[in-house]
């Protein structure tokens, strides 16, 4: 057989193996990417549900009765004052 034919056949067979190997690797990587994307999607969907649940639990109509049961009430004007020097507070000079 002509040496050229032999080398061509060898080249063809080896490149076929190489191509197959490459394609196999690509498929594996694609499967991994898809799996990761699915996980990311799942995580994103979980985050959305958790965010909605947190907002639902923190809704004012639920928090208000809980806060009132703790003895809390809305701020009144009596509880707000200008900032005063610490020395005045100690001496009792501030009397609102």
């Amino acid at each position: 057989m002509h040496p050229l034919t032999v080398s061509a056949a060898f080249l063809a067979i080896s490149s076929a193996f190489l191509l197959y190997g490459l394609s196999y690797d690509t498929r594996q990587l694609e499967a991994r990417v898809a799996a990761e994307e699915r996980r990311a999607e799942l995580a994103r969907s979980d985050i959305a549900v958790l965010k909605a649940e947190r907002a639902h639990l923190a809704r004012p109509s639920r928090i208000e009765p809980l806060a009132r049961a703790q003895g809390l009430a809305p701020l009144t004007d009596k509880q707000v004052t200008d900032s005063v020097p610490a020395s005045d507070i100690r001496t009792g000079a501030v009397n609102r």
Binding site: S45, A48, V49, K51, A52, R54, A55, A58
Partner: peptide, 9 residues
């Protein structure tokens, strides 16, 4: 920044 509406799956 408090949530009023969102999409869930």
């Amino acid at each position: 920044g408090r949530l009023l509406a969102t999409d869930i799956e």
